[in-house]
Simulated scan of single mutants.
Amino acid sequence: MTTDESKTDTAYEAALNEHYGATDLGDEILDALEAAGKDVDTLTREDIASFDEFHIRGLEATREVANLAEVEDHARILDVGCGIGGPARTLASEFGCDVVGIDVVEEYCRAATLFTDRVGLTDNVRFQHGNALDLPFADEEFDVVWFEHTLLNIEAKGVAIEEAGRVLRPGGTLTLYEICAGPGDEPVFPVPWASDGSLSYLDPPEKLREIVLDRGFDEAAWRDVTGPSLEWFRNVVESMQSRPADAPPPLGLNLLMGAETPIKAANVVRNLEEERIVVVQGVYERIG
């Protein structure tokens, strides 16, 4: 990503929107839910749980990171790269937080707003379009800034972390749940976050830690969760392979990843097995 450190790259934003932002995504998902027998006028979080959290290990991982970060009731959280809003809704409904989600993909923001309204969480969660490199918020506005599988699409990670620090109150918390470069060869594509290397920006874990620590944060927790991530994705692939050929499409991550879902999932397993990628969680405190 070629970017001035004070500006975002509109061409790159367009590429991300092309990769992630299927037209009328929310309506397409509603149609799939209705075809599966769900009452789309009275949806619950359970109805959309199978695809709601677009990251490895889904809801389980969001709960895990929130507990690791000791997220407090009534905390004001900024979810950067919020996708269709699953983590934000989890943080609001299960941890009592007030959450703002932001994403560079406009269709994700629309779908996130739609499903938040359908499950009755609009009083605690809202979404807006925006870029992690130029957050449209005032200084020291949030208690927590939350990244889940977001930095993997950002080359200028230092700028993103500086922006996170700017909008955090002193002593506020930065959480990371990210895919990093492993010690093996380059990743095999396509994968959920990129069809090829042009959208994939993975740093080794130690480089990511260095970026954060050099920008005014203290490390409170760090752990490698590659093992459970591999087990989870193996189960995903096995479930896909065991489905009868004439079975209707599942209500799963295929709704977000499209026709290439099987190959993308298989490539994630291969990348994890061959140590081309690793998965980490980190919690940091803003100094000052």
Score class of each variant (00 low, 15 high):
residue 5 E to K: 05
residue 5 E to Q: 09
residue 9 D to P: 00
residue 10 T to V: 05
residue 11 A to I: 02
residue 12 Y to W: 03
residue 12 Y to N: 04
residue 14 A to I: 00
residue 14 A to V: 03
residue 14 A to T: 08
residue 19 H to P: 03
residue 23 T to R: 15
residue 26 G to S: 00
residue 30 L to S: 03
residue 30 L to C: 03
residue 30 L to P: 01
residue 30 L to K: 03
residue 34 E to Y: 10
residue 36 A to T: 06
residue 36 A to G: 14
residue 37 G to R: 09
residue 40 V to L: 03
residue 43 L to K: 06
residue 43 L to A: 10
residue 45 R to H: 07
residue 46 E to K: 15
residue 48 I to F: 10
residue 52 D to V: 06
residue 53 E to H: 14
residue 55 H to A: 07
residue 56 I to C: 13
residue 58 G to E: 11
residue 60 E to S: 11
residue 61 A to V: 04
residue 62 T to S: 12
residue 62 T to P: 12
residue 63 R to S: 09
residue 66 A to H: 05
residue 69 A to H: 08
residue 70 E to D: 15
residue 76 R to C: 05
residue 76 R to M: 06
residue 80 V to T: 04
residue 83 G to E: 09
residue 85 G to L: 02
residue 86 G to F: 06
residue 90 T to A: 11
residue 92 A to K: 02
residue 93 S to E: 10
residue 97 C to E: 00
residue 97 C to V: 02
residue 99 V to Q: 00
residue 99 V to I: 02
residue 100 V to L: 01
residue 101 G to R: 02
residue 101 G to D: 00
residue 103 D to E: 02
residue 103 D to F: 02
residue 106 E to C: 03
residue 106 E to Q: 12
residue 112 A to I: 03
residue 112 A to W: 00
residue 116 T to P: 07
residue 119 V to I: 07
residue 122 T to I: 01
residue 129 H to P: 01
residue 131 N to C: 00
residue 131 N to P: 01
residue 133 L to A: 01
residue 139 D to E: 10
residue 139 D to G: 09
residue 141 E to T: 09
residue 143 D to H: 15
residue 144 V to L: 05
residue 145 V to A: 07
residue 148 E to D: 12
residue 152 L to R: 00
residue 152 L to A: 11
residue 154 I to H: 04
residue 155 E to L: 10
residue 156 A to S: 09
residue 156 A to M: 03
residue 156 A to Q: 05
residue 156 A to D: 04
residue 158 G to D: 11
residue 161 I to S: 03
residue 162 E to H: 01
residue 165 G to C: 03
residue 165 G to R: 02
residue 170 P to N: 09
residue 173 T to F: 06
residue 175 T to N: 00
residue 176 L to V: 15
residue 178 E to P: 00
residue 182 G to L: 08
residue 183 P to K: 09
residue 184 G to D: 11
residue 187 P to T: 11
residue 189 F to V: 04
residue 190 P to I: 13
residue 190 P to T: 08
residue 190 P to E: 05
residue 191 V to E: 04
residue 192 P to H: 09
residue 192 P to G: 15
residue 193 W to A: 15
residue 195 S to P: 13
residue 195 S to Y: 12
residue 199 L to N: 10
residue 202 L to Y: 08
residue 203 D to L: 13
residue 203 D to V: 12
residue 203 D to W: 05
residue 207 K to M: 09
residue 207 K to C: 05
residue 207 K to D: 13
residue 211 I to C: 06
residue 215 R to V: 04
residue 219 E to K: 14
residue 219 E to G: 13
residue 222 W to S: 05
residue 226 T to E: 12
residue 226 T to S: 14
residue 226 T to A: 12
residue 228 P to K: 07
residue 229 S to Q: 12
residue 230 L to P: 09
residue 233 F to P: 14
residue 237 V to R: 15
residue 237 V to P: 15
residue 241 Q to F: 14
residue 242 S to N: 15
residue 243 R to T: 13
residue 247 A to P: 12
residue 247 A to Q: 08
residue 249 P to A: 15
residue 249 P to S: 13
residue 250 P to V: 12
residue 250 P to M: 13
residue 252 G to C: 08
residue 256 L to C: 08
residue 256 L to E: 06
residue 258 G to D: 11
residue 258 G to N: 11
residue 260 E to C: 11
residue 262 P to S: 11
residue 263 I to W: 15
residue 266 A to L: 13
residue 267 N to I: 14
residue 268 V to Y: 04
residue 271 N to K: 06
residue 274 E to P: 15
residue 278 V to T: 14
residue 278 V to G: 10
residue 281 Q to C: 07
residue 281 Q to T: 07
residue 284 Y to I: 03
residue 284 Y to N: 03
residue 288 G to P: 04
